[in-house]
Design a protein around this nucleic acid. Sequence first.
DNA 1: CTAGAGTTTGACACTGATGTCAATGTCAAG
DNA 2: CTTGACATTGACATCAGTGTCAAACTCTAG
Lengths: 131, 131
Amino acid sequence: MKIGELAARTGVTPRLIRYYEQQDLLEADRAPNGYRTYTEAHVERVSRVAGLVQAGIPTRLVKVLLDTEDSAARDEPTCPREVAEQLATELVGVQARIDCLTRSRDSIRDFLTATQHEVLLREAEEPAVAV
Amino acid sequence: MKIGELAARTGVTPRLIRYYEQQDLLEADRAPNGYRTYTEAHVERVSRVAGLVQAGIPTRLVKVLLDTEDSAARDEPTCPREVAEQLATELVGVQARIDCLTRSRDSIRDFLTATQHEVLLREAEEPAVAV
DNA sequence: CTAGAGTTTGACACTGATGTCAATGTCAAG
DNA sequence: CTTGACATTGACATCAGTGTCAAACTCTAG
């Protein structure tokens, strides 16, 4: 598929998809005419990247995270001690973000419940659009 | 306490503390000489703000989130339907971020485990510096 | 009284993530 | 062949979050 379709399916603008590629978070094959071409796998990849970036992870780190997943998937036990330490450091940062966001989420929930708006809660939690 | 001490205790630079105040995320009393003065409560508040901002929540929303907590704490059932809907919307966004970060965290953990670096894991999870 | 550390405001600068625009190329449909 | 939709690259613009610096003030210690 071409960039337009990928954009439509992920909700990420073509501009950003190109930007992510430029930041080395994405790779794209090229059709003979120079157009970028993507596969199904890219859909998830792009969603993931966008999600992480939106969650405040700088692109530089997003790359590390996804590369980690990738090499884990291909189970390459490639892991120089130093990289592992960096990851461990990153881990605490990620966990801190999760904790912080979780508190906010709970606050919102509690508040909506306390103000008799549970209906909205159900609407909100149904879709489960986990990315 | 003055801004310097607050900064030291929260790990947030004075510059940012002033910025957050400017963005209406914080309020500070003034000493007769014009210096900002803070209470214990501000310590947590600042940490919270910084955490959310770092987690990718724009300051504009951080304000909404914390205001929600505040009014919940003072249990004011003040909640016009419209605000509730906005919050519900925000809720799904926050949840999406949490899911995304959680996946990354698990990936890192799994990876470190798979590569025999559990030691680092324990180091990383001990502090439990949840903010 | 003076020196030094901390504070105030305000300006300027930079970075990262995005939007937008321009000039050009590709391709499918009429 | 022409038109219109979509691609490409590259430049410029914007916004938020931060760093940094300057000039002036306050306070504490010597």
